[in-house]
Simulated assay, not measured.
Amino acid sequence: MEKFEVSNRAKLPTRFGDFFIQSFREFRVENDCRCPIEHLVAFTDPIVEIPLVRVHSECLTGDVFGSQKCDCGGELAMALEKITQSSKEGQGGMLIYLRQEGRGIGLFNKVNAYALQDKGYDTVEANEALGFKSDNRDYSIVGDILKYYGIKKIRLLTNNPRKITAMSQYVEVIRDSIIVPSNCHNEKYLATKKSKLGHLL
């Protein structure tokens, strides 16, 4: 039984630049159910030997609604800008958009975590109060995606040392930082990511 399926390739012109996209439909077995999760990969053409890569977990509130409580939307926009610029310089890159909302706890639970944050919990305390780990994400599909494209070495746009460790299981990793400006709504969130999750901020 296949672990994942891959869509056809399509063009995606954006305000950042022109990309190609493909969707990877991952199948996970949960409670005796083979559940599909559909991820998106946006990349410049051609795919170079050492692409600039952003592995970005879905954040509906930040990516779509422009939430100021996190830095996700800013990181997504900056990553696409950097990949576009890299392409203009003859390099190029790829954004892997994982459907792992709320560091893997899902949208419903993320909103409940937000409600706890409104009461003074930090982002880690809120997840743990709901019975989850501080980070519930699984990056195994990323290994399959990179292998599908024949990628063996990447320049990874991240501040998260756990993500560096996870990606290093699949490819050789060179880390590139991605720092977006903070604001009065996410200062505590960013401080928690640095102090409790070890982010390089």
Rank of each mutant, 00 (worst) to 15 (best):
F4Q: 02
F4D: 05
F4K: 04
E5S: 10
S7A: 09
R9Q: 15
R9E: 15
A10T: 13
A10Y: 13
K11E: 14
L12S: 08
P13V: 10
F16H: 09
G17N: 11
D18T: 14
I21Y: 14
Q22V: 14
Q22C: 12
R25M: 01
F27N: 02
F27L: 10
F27C: 05
E30H: 13
C35R: 15
C35G: 06
C35Y: 11
P36Y: 08
P36G: 10
I37N: 10
I37Y: 09
E38K: 08
H39M: 05
V41M: 08
I47N: 01
I50A: 05
P51Q: 05
V55D: 10
H56E: 05
S57G: 00
C59K: 13
C59M: 10
T61R: 06
T61Y: 09
G62P: 07
F65S: 10
S67M: 13
Q68W: 11
Q68L: 15
D71H: 12
M78K: 15
K82E: 13
K82S: 09
I83M: 03
Q85H: 12
K88S: 14
G90L: 10
G92T: 02
G93S: 05
M94C: 06
L95E: 03
I96W: 06
R99G: 00
Q100K: 01
E101Q: 02
G102I: 00
R103N: 00
G106N: 03
L107R: 06
N109D: 11
K110E: 13
K110A: 03
V111W: 09
N112G: 11
A113W: 00
Y114V: 00
Q117P: 04
Q117E: 04
D118C: 02
G120I: 01
G120L: 02
Y121W: 08
T123F: 07
T123I: 14
T123Q: 12
N127E: 09
N127V: 14
N127C: 12
A129I: 08
L130D: 11
G131T: 07
F132W: 03
S134I: 08
D135C: 00
R137H: 03
Y139N: 07
S140R: 07
V142E: 00
D144W: 01
D144G: 04
I145Y: 07
K147M: 03
K147L: 03
Y148W: 00
Y149G: 01
I151L: 00
I151R: 02
K153Y: 02
K153D: 04
R155H: 07
R155W: 04
R155A: 08
R155K: 10
L156T: 01
L156G: 10
P161Q: 04
P161H: 00
T165F: 07
T165Q: 13
T165M: 04
T165E: 12
A166N: 11
A166H: 11
S168W: 04
Y170N: 03
V171C: 04
I174G: 07
I174W: 06
I174N: 11
D176S: 12
V180F: 03
P181I: 02
S182E: 09
S182D: 13
N183F: 07
C184T: 15
T192H: 09
T192F: 06
S195Q: 13
S195Y: 10
K196D: 10
L200N: 03
L200T: 05
